[in-house]
């Protein structure tokens, strides 16, 4: 409802010129009115659904997080920012802080491992070869599988004495074997490994697509000028791939911050609850939904929202500005 409000008020303002009681010209005024009906009719449903189911819940999350409330009736016990900074607030809660730390480890780990790995493979494979289509399809498999499926798959493989352990023993690395998903010091790194497996293909596909858009003439010219393979990559190809790399970083960053499915499926609740492999999102659902601590769950949600939003805005403002006419960084014209 509220969403269509601005359009309506604009509709009143737009045909401002024929304000006087002019002789009825069926053309212009009717056309303008009709145009506004079309605009409202065609964008209204999308605006309504988007506002109601994406933005309004965020507003309510902020609201609920300022109360002590268990989900029944209307919240009455206003506690200000206690859920955030109070003695029992999120920022003093060691498990939440573990989750926050885990999110950042995953974020940095994803950028630092998947990016260079995918970039290296993409550069080496940046040429047409027979079977490339099949290769692209196979590399895409981990990305298209549902996170839940991937989680269960790796959970089975990484169970004690299952495939992973027996593989390591067979190549003489049996000494490394540990409780991959149970050892509190290891489980986060195991998860990072699974995430690397799942999402490196995504980065690789993006990079290969970006490389395909770089004209051959540029690298050929550099080669004629005597540049080595590495010099060509370093000074021609990678800079031209910059926009793709930066967009990938953006997507990877937002994805890492909202990480939920894989830790939820691969880790036992007990492991998560000790802070070894929880994330902000798993903690939000655990506390807010499973424990019915609505206001506390919403507090975690708001922190997740603010961190993502600020990080995304900063990234758009300072990193992506040159590449895309980011909708939020471009002046409205």
């Amino acid at each position: 409802m509220t969403a269509t409000q601005p359009s309506v008020s604009l509709a009143d303002r737009a045909p401002a010129r024929p304000a006087g009681p002019r002789p009825r010209v069926p053309g212009r005024a009717a056309r303008t009115r009709r145009k506004w009906y079309e605009i409202i009719g065609l964008t209204g449903p999308a605006l309504l659904v988007f506002t109601l189911f994406v933005l309004v819940p965020i507003g309510f999350a902020v609201y609920y997080s300022l109360y002590r409330w268990h989900g029944y009736g209307w919240p009455t016990e206003f506690v200000g920012l206690d859920n955030y900074f109070g003695p029992l607030g999120a920022f003093r809660d060691p498990i939440f802080r573990d989750g926050l730390r885990n999110n950042f480890i995953v974020l940095v780990g994803s950028l630092a491992v998947q990016g260079p790995l995918a970039l290296g493979i993409a550069l080496l494979l940046n040429r047409r070869f027979r079977g490339r289509a099949v290769f692209r399809l196979l590399v895409f498999v981990p990305y298209v599988l549902a996170e839940v499926t991937v989680g269960i798959m790796w959970q089975l493989i990484l169970q004690p004495d299952s495939a992973a352990d027996s593989f390591l023993r067979s190549i003489g690395l049996g000494g490394l074997v540990t409780g991959w998903l149970a050892n509190l010091n290891v489980v986060l790194w195991t998860m990072l490994f699974v995430l690397t497996w799942k999402y490196t293909g995504f980065a690789l596909i993006l990079f290969l697509a970006g490389l395909a858009n770089i004209p051959d003439e540029l690298t050929e010219a550099a080669a004629i000028d005597g540049a080595s393979w590495w010099q060509i990559q370093r000074h021609v190809t990678i800079p031209l791939l910059g926009p793709t790399i930066r967009i990938w970083m953006f997507l990877s960053m937002i994805g890492s911050l909202q990480l939920f499915d894989i830790p939820w499926v691969t880790s036992q609740a007990s492991v998560r609850s000790l802070g070894a492999s929880n994330t902000m999102a798993t903690y939000m659902v655990e506390e807010g939904f499973n424990q019915r601590l609505w206001s506390y769950g919403n507090t975690v949600a708001v922190i997740l929202f603010v961190i993502s939003f600020v990080a995304a805005l900063l990234f758009q403002r300072f990193v992506l500005r040159r590449d895309v006419d980011g909708a939020l960084t471009r002046r409205a014209n």
Binding site: F53, A61, Q258, A281, V302, A312, L328
Partner: peptide
Amino acid sequence: GMYTYFTLGLLFPAAAGILPLYLL
């Protein structure tokens, strides 16, 4: 402005509003 309004949705995870969304 309307376009920017829609693109706001790309800047944060939809998961952040999931608890109030469920209540709604």
